[in-house]
């Protein structure tokens, strides 16, 4: 459904990605593993249109979308839960969720369903989003992405900076979310979790894919080896 083909990316003179190929199928969960600076966030930002690339480097349902603006890509059904949550501080919890629905895509998810998924958000709907704990903020970020009724969600560093108990809660909620007919591309530093949640995984090192395959065949050792780029 989502295909990335020979994706290259530059920050000024610095090349961050050297011809990345990856694909996410329908109802498929794919994880992207790599150390800091490997190019994970760059990949995510390019897919969502925040960084520029050639039209044919990113395909959505077979159509080139690499040249589109971020808002146009969002309207196609690609949502992101960005690294570090990045909620809107001047918006309340509910406003943060409502703005996710700005793309006008009808579907399963609405305010009521998000509050059912994360009841604590319903209790705090009128609070400023900055008053929430890190885990609750992550719930808002996930809820905000769901409100767009996307067909795929990109999770960037889903557990970074969260307490282990919160990470467990988020990972428990994840299957419920994905079972509603979603695909997901998850960036995760925790190799064990990344292999457990996903159907397939890619390892990214220094801007190149160094390993890819089904999580049923790839072992943690394979990943470690690819991770450290030996």
């Amino acid at each position: 459904m989502l295909e990335v083909k020979a994706l290259t990316s530059f920050y000024g003179d610095f090349q961050a990605l050297f011809g990345i190929d990856l694909a996410v199928g329908e109802n498929e969960v794919v994880s992207l593993i790599g150390s800091n600076g490997a190019g994970k966030t760059t990949s995510m930002r390019t897919i969502t249109g925040l960084l520029h690339c050639d039209a044919n480097m990113v395909l959505w349902k077979g159509q080139p979308i690499g040249h589109l603006r971020p808002d146009q890509i969002a309207k196609q059904g690609i949502a992101m839960v960005p690294e570090g949550r990045q909620l809107f501080p001047s918006l309340s919890v509910e406003e943060n969720l409502r703005i996710g629905a700005q793309v006008n895509r009808p579907g399963f998810w609405n305010l009521v369903r998000v509050y059912e998924l994360f009841p604590v958000l319903g209790e705090r709907r009128n609070q400023a989003s900055t008053t929430l704990s890190g885990g609750q903020q992550q719930m808002v970020a996930i809820g905000r992405a769901l409100m767009a009724n996307p067909e795929i969600i990109l999770f960037d560093e889903i557990s970074l900076g969260l307490a282990p108990i919160i990470i467990n809660q988020i990972y428990e909620a994840l299957p419920n979310i994905i079972d509603n007919g979603l695909s997901a591309l998850i960036v995760e530093q925790d190799i064990a979790r990344a292999l457990k949640i996903a159907h397939r995984c890619y390892c990214l090192s220094e801007g190149k894919i160094t390993l890819s395959g089904g999580t049923d065949v790839i072992t943690q050792d394979d990943v470690s080896q690819a991770y450290f780029g030996v």
């Binding site: 969502t48 249109g49 925040l50 603006r69 971020p70 808002d71 969002a74 309207k75 949502a79 992101m80 960005p82 990045q86 809107f88 501080p89 001047s90 918006l91 703005i99 996710g100 700005q102 793309v103 006008n104 905000r144 767009a148």
Partner: peptide, 15 residues
């Protein structure tokens, strides 16, 4: 307000 807070993320909301 969202654009003022964070223009990049606001774009991901379809703005």
């Amino acid at each position: 307000r969202a654009t003022s807070d964070n223009a990049d993320i606001a774009q991901l909301m379809g703005l």
